[in-house]
Amino acid sequence: MFSKESLIALQSIFIKEVTRYFRIWVQTLLPPAITMSLYFVIFGQLIGSRVGQMGGVSYMEYITPGIIMMSVITNSYSNVVSSFFSAKFQRSIEEMLVSPVPTLYILLGYIFGGVSRGLLTGIIVTLVASQFVDLEVHHWGILFFVVILTSMLFATGGLVNAIFAKKFDDISIVPTFILTPLTYLGGVFYSIQLLPEFWQTVSLANPILYMVNAFRYGFLGFSDIDIVHALILLSVFILSLFSLAYYLLTKGIGIRS
């Protein structure tokens, strides 16, 4: 299971993934920097200056963790979904299927690739944010732990999406119609305490709310939800999706006839 050969195979998948998104950096690494700069200018400076304070900090400071998290979520998901689906589409997935790479390592290779792109874009957006706001970190441990777990979760989600996808449309449905609305409604730009009680309760069903708030806690030291609760939920989601992805790959669903 943990043989030297398997670790070399894992390293090969990871290098292939990293090389892929660096090769197309104009499509993968540049857009988050530009899009998030626009968010900071429009929502942070222009509108934010009129909003005033939220949670005792400037609006710009308040939205920064959520915007960083948004780029981490989007990029870790889209890296795996597009890479794995392209491999299916071009049939290069067969390179792995005929080889003795254990399923677990195929899964980990893609997840690590997605996590690395999520983290890299997170760092890029943080650097962009530092041009607009003085960032201070309240709790490095929570910050690190939450960003790793979140990118793992969405990288795994991207893989499950790609396994089921049969055409290119199928890999954009989830990000467009599920992920984006959940992210925007996940407390990136507002505190759920501003919502009526009913919508506060509804918001608690949105998993992204927990990730954004836990990440915000790492930066600012306050959150709309309990941090331990958020971390447990994240771990449960990861375990569930990871088990599903492992089962699908082992059975060859969507990749073997």
Binding site: K16, R20, R23, E95, S99, P100
Partner: peptide
């Protein structure tokens, strides 16, 4: 059918494949 990534170079394709079989880089 051709079943490699069309965007990778020849060397990347063969070296990565060797890696899947545990051949050191």
């Amino acid at each position: 059918e051709f079943n490699f990534s069309q965007f990778e170079t020849c060397k990347q394709i063969v070296v990565t494949q060797a890696g899947y079989y545990g051949v050191p880089r």
